[in-house]
Simulated scan of single mutants.
Amino acid sequence: MSRENGAVWDPAQYGVFGGERARPFAELVARLGGAEPARVADLGCGSGELTATLAARWPAAVIEALDSSPEMIAEARRHEIPGRLSFRVGDVTAWKPGGPVDLIVSNAVLQWVPGHPGLLPRWAAALAPGGRLAFQVPGNFGAPSHALLRELARSDRWRAKLGRLQEDAPVLDPAGYLDLLARHGYAVDAWETTYAQVLHGDDPVLEWVKGTALRPVLAALDPDETGEFLTTYRERLRRAYPAAPYGTVFPFRRIFVIATRNTT
């Protein structure tokens, strides 16, 4: 999503760790096996690089991609293929397909959508028989990167401006998503993976979070406040994620779900 609490996506900042962010998407798509979908929707496509890999994987597919961020879509349109791959600005919560789709993909988006468990059955209902809904979301909201951010935002110094910006747990666990979609009649494959990522550079965990969870916080602060907030948060992150000679270890949990509609 693009402007949670006034925040704007920055494709360059988000892409600083592009390789690490792309890996869960690649592993989600790999789990789909040898399917050959004819019609695909990528809901929350970001800057489009990963959507373009779907066009390469399934050259006969027609792919519709949307994201609520004009900044991201402006970047994504570099990857358009007339008649095969298109990008547009749109709200994933209001998405309605023109007809049944064979595959819906949503990559690291639903954590930004309040009440998204209620949205998933509607998305799944748009699938053609045998079609699949495949998504992944971060599951690291209990990690120090997020716990420290919530703690600081809710402190006496920042509570008035920031106290409501950070949810404790905006996603379900794999069993929660399985139960939700299985009760609607879908066959569900749900799992989780924790990546022991090694990040490089100065304060790399801070740089990572600047591209995602910090955006609403920074949008709510004026420049002087931003400097003060980041100084405190940086110091806490350095203690939680100490640098080693080979880099900084940043464990990251991801939750994956593939729900398949029956063929009848």
Results as ranks from 00 to 15, higher is better:
Arg3Glu: 15
Arg3Ala: 14
Ala7Lys: 07
Val8Asp: 05
Trp9Tyr: 03
Tyr14Ser: 09
Phe17Gly: 03
Phe17Thr: 06
Gly18Gln: 11
Gly18Cys: 05
Gly19Phe: 04
Glu20Asp: 13
Ala22Arg: 10
Phe25Asp: 05
Ala26Ser: 09
Ala26Val: 07
Glu27Tyr: 03
Glu27Trp: 01
Gly33Tyr: 09
Gly33Asp: 03
Gly33Thr: 07
Gly34Arg: 12
Arg39Lys: 13
Ala41Asp: 05
Leu43His: 05
Cys45Ala: 14
Gly48Ile: 01
Gly48Phe: 12
Thr51Leu: 08
Thr51Ile: 09
Ala52Val: 07
Thr53His: 05
Thr53Ile: 04
Ala55Thr: 07
Ala56His: 06
Val62Leu: 09
Ile63Gly: 10
Ile63Val: 14
Glu64Pro: 03
Glu64Lys: 08
Ser68Val: 12
Ser68Ile: 09
Ser69Ile: 10
Met72His: 12
Ile73Arg: 09
Glu75Trp: 13
His79Met: 08
Ile81His: 12
Gly83Cys: 06
Gly83Thr: 11
Asp91Met: 12
Val92Arg: 02
Thr93Trp: 01
Thr93Asn: 13
Trp95Leu: 05
Lys96His: 12
Gly98Leu: 02
Gly99Trp: 06
Pro100Ser: 13
Asp102His: 14
Val105Gln: 00
Ser106Arg: 03
Asn107Trp: 06
Leu110Thr: 02
Ala125Glu: 01
Ala126Ser: 15
Gly131Arg: 04
Val137Glu: 02
Gly139Glu: 01
Gly139Val: 04
Gly142Pro: 00
Ala143Ile: 00
Pro144Asn: 11
Arg150Asp: 05
Arg150Pro: 01
Arg150Ala: 15
Glu151Pro: 06
Glu151Arg: 14
Glu151Cys: 09
Leu152Glu: 09
Asp156Trp: 02
Asp156Ser: 15
Ala160Asn: 06
Leu162Ala: 13
Gly163Pro: 11
Asp168Tyr: 05
Ala169Pro: 00
Asp173Pro: 00
Ala175Ser: 14
Ala175Leu: 15
Tyr177Ser: 02
Leu178Pro: 00
His184Ile: 00
Tyr186Val: 00
Ala187Leu: 10
Ala187Lys: 04
Ala187Arg: 13
Val188Lys: 00
Ala190Leu: 03
Trp191Lys: 01
Glu192Phe: 00
Ala196His: 11
Ala196Ser: 12
Leu199Tyr: 07
Pro204Trp: 11
Leu206Lys: 06
Leu206Trp: 08
Leu206Asp: 02
Lys210Ser: 13
Gly211Glu: 07
Gly211Lys: 05
Ala213Val: 10
Ala213Pro: 01
Pro216Asn: 08
Thr226Ser: 10
Glu228Ser: 14
Glu228Pro: 00
Thr232His: 12
Glu235Val: 02
Ala240Pro: 01
Ala240Val: 10
Tyr241Val: 03
Pro242Lys: 13
Pro242Gln: 13
Ala243Ile: 10
Pro245Asn: 10
Phe250Ile: 07
Pro251Tyr: 02
Arg254Met: 08
Thr260Met: 00
Thr264Lys: 11
